[in-house]
Every structure is written in C-alpha cells, then in structure tokens.
C-alpha cells in the first residue's frame, strides 16, 4: 500500500490528476484492497493460532462447544451484569492465551462498537427505555464477537471446521467447508492477479459504465475459471478413490483436560444463564 502511496503523485498540483486516476480504477483499487485485507486477516489469525497459550492447548471440540455455550448464555441473558461477567472472562482468556488485547481491540472491539453503536445510538432517543436497550445490544454483540474471536485466534481453521463434526454437522458438509476454505485462497489469488494486471493496463479515466463492465467481466472470468477448476478437482478426487462419500479421520479421544475444560465452560455458562434469568 505504502509503496504505491509514494509512487503516486507527490505534490498538490498532481493531486487533481491522481484523484481522477483513482476514480478511473476505483473498482480495481477497492477490490484489491478488500482482497489483500482478507488475505492479511487470514494470515494473522493463522499465525496466532499456532502460538502456545491456554486456549491453543485445548482440543478444538471442547473449545468450540464451550465457547458456543458461552455465546448462548450471553444471548439468553435478560440482565446486563452477567453479560459483563462473560466479557471479563473472555478478556482474561485472551490474556491467558497470549492474544494481545490491542489486536482484539483493532480487529473486533472498535469495529463492533462502531457498527452496533451506530445502530443502537438512535434508539436512546426514539425507543422507550432506549438507553438500556442500546446497552443490551452493544454489550451482547461485543461480547459474542470477542468470544468468537477467541475461537478463531486460538484454533487453526481447518481444525475448527473439523470440530463441527462434534456438533453432529454431517461429514459431507464438513468436507465441503474444508474445501471451501482451501479454495478461498486459490480464487483470491486468481482474483488479485486479475485485478493487478487490469490495473497495469488501465490508463486514463473510465466511465462508470465502463467500470461496471470491467467489474462484471472480472466476476464472470472468475466464475468460468472456478467451474473449470471444480471439474479438474473432481477428476483429481476420483483419481484417488473418491466415490461421493466423505470421510473424516476420527479425531483422537478427548483427553481428561479437554473434558475438564469443557465442564468448566459448561458450568460457567450455566451459572451465567442462571444469573441472567
């Protein structure tokens, strides 16, 4: 990003020119930005999940089920303070797992506050008991977002998807989700290459209609290539004995400490639900 910032027009006089250039390729620029941001987010989450910490050491299944129970407790609560209690616990867990609060703040808290805050704020003025209601909305969504961030930041994504088997999600759905995750990055790369080569070929201003045509054609190229890719992948699967049935290797048995942690999660969630009635 920054290299581009420097290579672009430097002085005030050039600002106007670069502004129209920006308009010209706005679609491409913005899309590249979104794609980079996604790749970046994924890379950061993957790195964090590999570090050692309290949550990282737990079995993904007990972590998934435990955190889901906490999310349910938060959603069920009819009082504010039990939600705050879970939030405090989530912060403690993050600290114990070496997940830096700054990272959580930047990627979860600020966005969640901005997002839900903007939606909740007007209710203070237009809804009866709006202040309390806004507090519910904000605290609930903030706490739930923090909990799911704990899950994602402490568990490799493939392991997390596989843990869905513990929730009785059918094997074929888990296999498809795993494959979706895998091809996300291939298609992201194809899209980025396409956009970047488009950027290097674009000179001068493009009309809105022209930009729309480029956007739709990009999506169309991507679609054709994805269908082609899926046909090839199908052959590769057949070649290795695929007959339409999905199998996952059964995970190792839950260790005592996984059961203990699950029990702790469940106990805490039950407590919170009790308080929040």
């Amino acid at each position: 990003m920054d290299e581009r910032a420097h290579s672009r027009a430097g002085g005030d006089r050039k600002l106007m020119a670069s502004r129209s250039a920006r308009r010209a390729s706005a679609f491409v620029e913005k899309s590249i930005h979104s794609l980079l941001e996604t790749a970046d987010y994924a890379a950061r989450a993957e790195r964090r999940a590999e570090s050692r910490g309290l949550l990282q050491r737990l079995d993904p299944r007990s972590k998934l089920v435990g955190i889901l129970l906490l999310i349910f407790a938060v959603v069920f609560s009819r009082a504010l303070w039990p939600i705050a209690l879970v939030f405090a616990a989530a912060v403690a867990l993050a600290l114990g797992s070496g997940i830096r609060l700054r990272a959580v703040a930047v990627s979860i808290w600020i966005p969640a506050l901005l997002f839900t805050g903007a939606i909740a704020l007007p209710s203070v003025f237009v809804v009866e008991h709006g202040g309390r209601s806004a507090a519910f909305l904000v605290s609930r969504s903030l706490t739930c977002a923090t909990l799911s961030a704990l899950l994602v930041f402490s568990t490799p994504w493939p392991a997390l998807l596989k843990a869905l088997r513990a929730l009785r999600v059918p094997a074929i759905a888990v296999a498809m989700l795993g494959m979706t995750y895998r091809y996300l990055f291939s298609i992201l790369d194809i899209a980025r290459d396409m956009m970047e080569s488009r950027r290097s070929r674009t000179v001068g201003a493009l009309s809105g209609a022209e930009q729309r045509r480029i956007a739709a054609a990009s999506a169309g190229v991507l679609l054709s290539r994805s269908v082609q890719l899926s046909r090839e992948v199908h052959l590769a699967m057949l070649s290795r004995g695929y007959r339409g049935e999905a199998f996952t290797l059964e995970e190792r048995r839950m260790r005592p400490r996984d059961w203990t942690s699950l029990a702790l999660f469940a106990g805490f969630a039950a407590l919170v639900t009790g308080f929040g009635r």
Binding site: A26, I172, M176, T180, L188, A215, L222, H234
Partner: peptide, 20 residues
C-alpha cells in the same frame, strides 16, 4: 462436493468486490 465448495469460495470472494 467440488462444485459447491469451489463455488462457495467464489461467492465469498465476489462478495468482497466493490461494485461501482
């Protein structure tokens, strides 16, 4: 499986396009 998986990855990416 391959068709749906690749297609859902595709829709994920397309959802990120900023359409003018």
């Amino acid at each position: 499986t391959p068709l749906l998986a690749v297609f859902s990855a595709l829709s994920f990416i397309v959802m990120m396009f900023n359409l003018p």
